[in-house]
């Protein structure tokens, strides 16, 4: 981790009109690695992800440091952000049923990324699109290229999404619950495709999920978030050493195949966890 892609220090976010901050004092750094962000629904995971892309209109974002490669994200203007989004940093959204434009062909939506960031002709963009669709294991790219989102399955839709977001070869990809909307049967398949591409291309990945069990196999490190704060950071393989009671609760709440058949633990929540920051 000699050359961090992203440095976040003391990030706080407040939505317009909200009485308190949705995210408070979040700090982490990210190299060319895969970082998991895990927490229950509403804990502020997506808010962090969108803040990094500065896609929270009206929200107040403060931080001691918000550095992406050579850029100070806090200081960037919207015009400068346009050159960052999609090109150097992108995001995979949760549900392809909603995150793809329903009345545009899949192929032209992928090609849009290319046309936006590179001075290429339509034909070149199409070639690049087909290549990218093949790279996400779509067997018949020519056919899928001309389909509409409602004509493809969820797993295929999410692969199209991955193709769209990786096409410009960004340095950082945020995957916001990329498999939560998918059938259990294709989740692993999609995650493996994403994982393979990210590893091959040396892309930094932030994998947001509420499912600790799913994420731990794909990430080098995991941040545990609770009520807008990071309560604990764990390295892969060190989950047994979890200190924080909330993390322990999360781990205990995971059902294990072949594990002892005792009732799953109910998550314990204490107000003081939202106050203190564990060292």
């Amino acid at each position: 981790m000699t050359d961090p892609i992203l440095e976040v220090s003391n990030l706080s976010i407040r939505y317009p009109g909200a009485s308190s901050e949705a995210v408070r004092g979040v700090s982490f750094t990210l190299g060319r690695e895969r970082l998991g962000v895990v927490g229950e629904s509403g804990s502020g995971k997506s808010t962090v992800g969108r803040a990094l892309l500065k896609l929270l209109p009206g929200a107040r974002i403060t931080a001691d440091r918000l550095r992406f490669e050579d850029l100070d994200l806090l200081a960037l203007s919207e015009a400068e952000m346009l050159k960052v989004r999609g090109r150097r940093m992108s995001m995979i959204l949760q549900d392809p049923k909603f995150s793809l434009n329903p009345i545009q062909r899949v192929g032209s939506q992928v090609a849009e990324t290319c046309l936006r960031h590179f001075p290429v002709s339509r034909a070149e963009a199409k070639a690049k699109t087909l290549e990218m669709l093949a790279a996400v294991n779509i067997r018949d790219p020519e056919r899928v290229h001309d389909l509409y989102p409602h004509e493809i399955s969820g797993g295929m839709g999410q692969r199209v999404m991955i193709a769209m977001m990786l096409l410009a070869d960004p340095d950082l990809v945020i995957a916001d619950e990329p498999t939560s909307a998918l059938d259990v049967t294709v989740r692993l398949q999609v995650l493996n495709i994403l994982d393979g591409l990210v590893r091959d291309r040396g892309i930094g990945l932030i994998m947001i999920s509420h499912d600790l069990n799913l994420v731990r196999n794909f990430c080098d490190r995991v941040l545990i978030m609770y009520a807008g704060r990071v309560v604990e950071t764990l390295k892969a393989g060190e989950f047994d050493k979890a200190q924080h009671p909330y993390t322990r609760g999360l781990l205990a709440a995971q059902p294990r195949i072949g594990g002892p058949r005792k009732p799953l633990a109910v998550l314990d929540r204490r107000p003081e966890w939202t106050e203190e920051l564990p060292a």
Partner: peptide
């Protein structure tokens, strides 16, 4: 949500409004 997708791809707000929302 697809409006967010378009923004993530790097389109400006005007482009997302006209090409995507208005197109639809």
């Amino acid at each position: 949500e697809y409006m967010t997708t378009a923004r993530v791809k790097g389109l400006s707000r005007g482009q997302t409004i006209w090409r995507h929302a208005f197109g639809n």
